[in-house]
């Protein structure tokens, strides 16, 4: 083999193992999974498997469960990401200035991130359990709950349980990313701004935020997609209940597939979720492009 050819093939040699694996285990199954959306496919039902065209999508229009889950997905994602981001930014700013014991504090506040998702869910479910958890009693003491009961069994409040767990679990991710970005801002920019007479608030608004903006945009987008797909907390804490009140689309897909065994319909819902997420990501990218063009 000539050297020129060898050099041209070299990058593919390095990427091939990953690519083959991802193609075989993720992409091919994804295509198969999407094709189920157009089939009547019910596990353990030998009579199913027919091509049904867009039937599942028509069914979705009249499926209250789908619409509830869609609404919940928006609430779940928006509230979780907003709170994770807000607290994450505050935490990052707190950690950005030096103080004795910073290394230890940083390790401790980032610890929730290492906790497996299902275990965070279980832990928070227990915290909300009035028998062994303190939260219902505290909420009652604060006058937020009429009686110290489990909010996870109240259809109107139950979604806040997984959201609380999600915020607790997700703050470190934002804090880590933002802290890293903060530390990459050269200190002399702040000094220059201070020499120009800018106070701390103005410096934050005029220096910190604009320089963090690219990181913020990308992190928030990736995280939004990720949180929207993240069904584990809901599955573990409420199983989508009571009475499907806390289903988000991804947990609804899970329920459809593995409790009702209706893989066809589940795949159709998954396809819709995928489309929505792609549209969202594309919109963010376009917006970011427009903003940077203007700047």
């Amino acid at each position: 083999m000539s050297r020129a050819l060898a050099l041209r093939l070299e990058p593919y040699f390095y990427t091939a193992p990953s690519l083959l694996l991802i193609a075989a285990i993720m992409l091919v199954p994804l295509v198969t999974g999407l094709s189920y959306a157009f089939h009547d496919l019910i596990l353990l039902d030998p009579l199913s498997g027919d091509f049904v065209g867009l039937d599942h999508f028509r069914e979705m229009l009249n499926d209250d469960g789908f619409w509830t889950a869609l609404r919940n997905t928006v609430v779940w994602t928006a509230v979780s990401v907003a709170l994770q981001f807000g607290f994450g930014l505050i935490l990052a700013l707190l950690l950005d200035r030096p103080f004795p014991g910073r290394g230890l504090v940083q390790a401790l506040v980032f610890l929730p991130w290492a906790v497996p998702g299902f275990l965070s869910g279980l832990t928070w479910a227990w915290l909300f359990n009035p028998v062994i958890g303190p939260l219902p009693h505290w909420l009652h003491g604060l006058g937020l709950l009429a009686t110290p009961e489990n909010i996870l069994s109240d259809p109107h409040l139950a979604l806040w349980g997984p959201i609380a767990a999600n915020v607790w679990w997700g703050i470190p991710f934002f804090a880590i990313t933002l802290l890293a970005a903060l530390q990459s801002i050269p200190k002399d920019i702040y000094e220059a701004a201070a020499m120009d007479g800018a106070g701390p608030l103005l410096r934050f608004r005029r220096v910190t935020l604009p320089l963090l903006a690219p990181t913020i945009a990308i992190t928030v987008m990736l995280r939004t997609v990720w949180v929207a797909n993240f069904a584990e907390l809901i599955v573990v804490m409420t199983k989508g209940g009571p009475a499907d009140a806390t289903q988000i689309l991804s947990s609804y897909i899970f329920t459809l597939a593995f409790q009702r065994l209706d893989f066809g319909y589940a795949s159709a819902v998954a396809a819709v979720l995928l489309l929505l997420l792609l549209a969202y990501a594309a919109a963010v990218m376009v917006l970011r492009h427009v903003m940077t063009e203007r700047a």
Binding site: L43, L249, A270
Partner: peptide, 11 residues
């Protein structure tokens, strides 16, 4: 990294 992994369990 973007799609709901639930969709590929059965395949």
């Amino acid at each position: 990294q973007m799609f709901p992994l639930v969709i590929i369990v059965a395949p």
